[in-house]
Design a binder for these strands. Structure first.
Lengths: 152, 152
DNA sequence: ATTTACACTGAAAATTTTTCCAATATGACC
DNA sequence: GGTCATATTGGAAAAATTTTCAGTGTAAAT
């Protein structure tokens, strides 16, 4: 699909606050409520807007400890790759898993309660997955910026 | 605040789909609509739920290229740190910036159109920030998993 | 036993979303 | 430039949802 300037503005607004009413949005966009409604439906139907979610503050739910884990597979056999990706996806502590270029194969974002919980995660879950060659972990000291809003 | 099992379930549901009506939620939780409403309000007022957002599919808005950039500062003077963090926060291409342990000081998640746009971002924006010592970039080959839902 | 605090329910009120229709704009084609 | 087909818009009505409210039940504290 194709976007005009209003669609872009609308996406920016919804990426920052999806609980705004169509009336509020119509004011900000100088449109009628129906026009806003139709534009949003179009963005949803075309898959531009993927889903609507509530973002939870990790400190409030005892998941303040964030780590990034580099992972190298022992061998790059397709069967191993598929199995690793499947198993890592099933771990709820792993919020993100990216297959990346460079010295390691994967970069994971892991969220747990504290260092102790992380140790447990590594020992009992992550390194239990087959075919992992080596890992290297980096711990988040402070979160400088974190947004889900894609620049549009 | 303190959570019971219903609050946890509610947070899980809202982290995956915040557009569900309270009636739908009330069915899944075996509660009245009002009870759901009040629990959600409590979670919002206590800052557990931070915000509600629309998640946009990056492929649909021509931002398919994702990179992680390691950054080392030239010196760790507080003034440099503060200035770097402020300037990097202002870059819309940078969705995340984490101060991390390890060989580098920061890990950035960057989202742009393609490799060409990334080159431009590096040359014209990122390395224009003062006090950067060195950088090391990793490119995302494929996204194995990506969620905003914190395990609760 | 009484009070207090808190979460719950169901119904009513307020607001928002969604539908519907007519009017207007837009773009392709002649 | 004019005409057709298509898409977008605005306003009003209908449908659905959110929000408020009053009353009930439960558990802890006095």
């Amino acid at each position: 699909m194709t976007f005009d300037a209003i669609d872009k503005k609308l996406l920016q607004l919804l990426q920052n606050d999806s609980k705004q009413t169509n009336k509020e949005l119509s004011n900000k966009l100088n449109l009628s409520v129906t026009a806003v409604f139709e534009r949003i439906k179009k963005l949803e139907n075309n898959g531009v807007i993927n889903k609507y979610v509530a973002l939870v503050k990790k400190e409030k739910v005892e998941k303040s400890f964030v780590a990034f884990c580099h992972i190298k597979l022992s061998q790059h056999i397709q069967e191993y790759v598929v199995q690793f990706e499947k198993e890592v996806t099933n771990l709820t502590e792993v919020l993100e898993c990216h297959h990346i270029s460079g010295d390691y194969d994967y970069l994971l974002k892991v969220m747990v309660k504290d260092m102790e919980a992380f140790r447990e995660f590594m020992v009992e879950k992550l390194t239990n997955i087959n075919h992992i060659g080596s890992t290297h972990s980096m711990f988040v000291i402070s979160e400088v910026k974190s947004t889900t809003a894609i620049p549009i």
